[in-house]
């Protein structure tokens, strides 16, 4: 006889200003995905194509905050997720996109759209459909409260697996030397 099915936890994931590398790494847990879906149900995530996040237990955020839309998605996740996790270098410290931070935004936009060859003279895009860029790229903990951080660029599949299994088992996630990487 089967034991009564344990209630599955709901998990959502999103990429903000990131490269989807952390999501790719997530897929690197390979066949352990089968174990994972025994434990969790996916809410909004590139894996499900659900567009709006609903009430969740865990939200995984890849990428930092580069524009207004990133802020909306992040706030939505914070509102709906009991536990919010910053996954990867960009979510944690802005990562590669944040390397624009020392340069004033107007200089960047001018160089890309007005002065240098390439897109020059195309004008700065002003379609209301496009999210406006923030002055600086911010790590997500500077805008909402973040409960856990999983470093790496990307964190390896093993690190993600270890982190999630710890969390799902109610343990404080602990990577140890082998899985702890900022790169």
């Amino acid at each position: 006889m089967d034991a009564p099915a344990k209630k599955k936890l709901r998990l959502a994931t999103a990429t903000l200003a990131g490269c989807f590398g952390c999501h790719m790494s997530f897929l690197d847990i390979d066949e352990r995905l089968f174990d994972l879906v025994e434990l969790v149900e996916f809410d909004r995530s590139p894996l499900t194509d659900i567009k709006e996040v609903g009430p969740c237990d865990i939200g995984l955020i890849e990428g930092g905050l580069c524009n207004a839309e990133n802020v909306h998605v992040l706030r939505d996740f914070r509102k709906h997720c009991r536990i919010l996790v910053a996954v990867g270098a960009c979510a944690i410290n802005g990562g590669l996109p944040a390397q624009r931070n020392p340069i004033p935004l107007h200089e960047i936009l001018s160089e890309v759209y007005l002065t240098e060859p390439g897109l020059a003279h195309s004008g700065i895009p002003n379609d209301p459909e496009l999210p406006l860029p923030l002055n600086k790229v911010h790590p997500i903990h500077e805008v909402v409260k973040v409960d856990y951080f999983l470093p790496g660029c990307p964190p390896s599949g093993d690190a993600i697996w270890k982190f999630l299994t710890d969390l799902l088992a109610g343990r404080e996630p602990e990577l140890g030397h082998a899985l702890m990487h900022y790169d």
């Binding site: 207004a68 004033p104 936009l109 700065i124 209301p128 406006l132 860029p133 002055n135 600086k136």
Partner: peptide, 15 residues
């Protein structure tokens, strides 16, 4: 933090 971008795009819509 969106002010510079608003200025450069001339946008002031709710988005």
């Amino acid at each position: 933090s969106l002010q510079a971008a608003r200025q450069m795009t001339g946008r002031d819509d709710s988005g």
